[in-house]
Measured scan of single mutants.
Amino acid sequence: MTVLPKDIPGDSLKVTVGTANGKPGDTVTVPVTFADVAKMKNVGTCNFYLGYDASLLEVVSVDAGPIVKNAAVNFSSSASNGTISFLFLDNTITDELITADGVFANIKFKLKSVTAKTTTPVTFKDGGAFGDGTMSKIASVTKTNGSVTIDP
């Protein structure tokens, strides 16, 4: 049996954390987006972790974005102690894959008090994996961190 590389060099799934701005007490939304989904033969499963400074940001909610089908079954998240974990699994293993680019999740943060303008990162942590529509590992994932700026 011969195994051929399935990824064209330079191609990767792009996962990007967005940015937001606000004043202390505001609730802002930071999107997590996927790009080049079709090039990577869709997404059938993924789990990953984001870190944030809990002294500056309070997670209000984490909701599935419009590219997630049947989110009540296929999407899960949790947030505590400065870490947000995400889990997606197409429970049907074929019919509810992520097949389009767009917003995977929206994180709502309540901004805490600061004395001066502060930009705090929302960054990928170690761990996690992504699988394509056949549940094979997506070897190349380009992750881009985001941030939230609090301006009193």
Rank of each mutant, 00 (worst) to 15 (best):
residue 136 S to Y: 15
residue 80 S to P: 05
residue 80 S to R: 15
residue 54 A to F: 13
residue 141 V to A: 03
residue 137 K to C: 01
residue 42 N to D: 14
residue 21 N to M: 10
residue 23 K to I: 09
residue 149 T to N: 14
residue 132 D to N: 10
residue 62 V to H: 08
residue 111 L to G: 02
residue 60 V to M: 09
residue 5 P to V: 06
residue 45 T to C: 07
residue 63 D to T: 14
residue 56 L to W: 08
residue 25 G to W: 09
residue 29 T to P: 12
residue 79 A to D: 15
residue 108 K to H: 03
residue 30 V to R: 07
residue 46 C to Q: 04
residue 46 C to N: 08
residue 104 F to I: 03
residue 53 D to Y: 14
residue 106 N to Y: 08
residue 101 D to Y: 07
residue 129 A to V: 04
residue 66 P to A: 12
residue 104 F to M: 02
residue 45 T to P: 01
residue 42 N to H: 11
residue 25 G to Y: 12
residue 113 S to Y: 06
residue 142 T to F: 04
residue 44 G to C: 06
residue 20 A to V: 11
residue 40 M to A: 08
residue 7 D to R: 14
residue 127 G to M: 01
residue 46 C to G: 05
residue 99 T to V: 07
residue 55 S to R: 09
residue 23 K to V: 11
residue 85 S to H: 02
residue 143 K to L: 02
residue 19 T to E: 14
residue 113 S to K: 06
residue 53 D to N: 09
residue 102 G to L: 15
residue 112 K to W: 01
residue 62 V to Q: 07
residue 29 T to A: 13
residue 41 K to D: 13
residue 65 G to I: 04
residue 17 V to W: 06
residue 3 V to F: 13
residue 115 T to F: 07
residue 32 V to Q: 11
residue 37 V to Y: 05
residue 5 P to T: 08
residue 71 A to Q: 09
residue 30 V to H: 12
residue 82 G to Q: 15
residue 116 A to F: 05
residue 145 N to C: 03
residue 22 G to A: 10
residue 62 V to D: 05
residue 55 S to H: 13
residue 9 P to Y: 08
residue 106 N to Q: 08
residue 58 E to H: 08
residue 51 G to Q: 11
residue 92 T to N: 02
residue 25 G to A: 10
residue 34 F to A: 06
residue 76 S to L: 08
residue 4 L to H: 09
residue 85 S to A: 14
residue 118 T to L: 04
residue 107 I to F: 05
residue 124 F to K: 07
residue 3 V to T: 09
residue 43 V to D: 04
residue 138 I to Y: 01
residue 142 T to P: 05
residue 54 A to R: 13
residue 95 D to C: 02
residue 3 V to I: 11
residue 55 S to M: 08
residue 133 G to Q: 05
residue 15 V to I: 06
residue 121 P to L: 07
residue 52 Y to L: 11
residue 118 T to P: 08
residue 136 S to D: 01
residue 133 G to V: 03
residue 75 F to V: 03
residue 150 I to C: 15
residue 124 F to A: 02
residue 110 K to E: 04
residue 94 T to S: 04
residue 17 V to C: 14
residue 49 Y to D: 00
residue 15 V to Q: 05
residue 83 T to A: 09
residue 8 I to Q: 10
residue 103 V to G: 05
residue 38 A to Q: 11
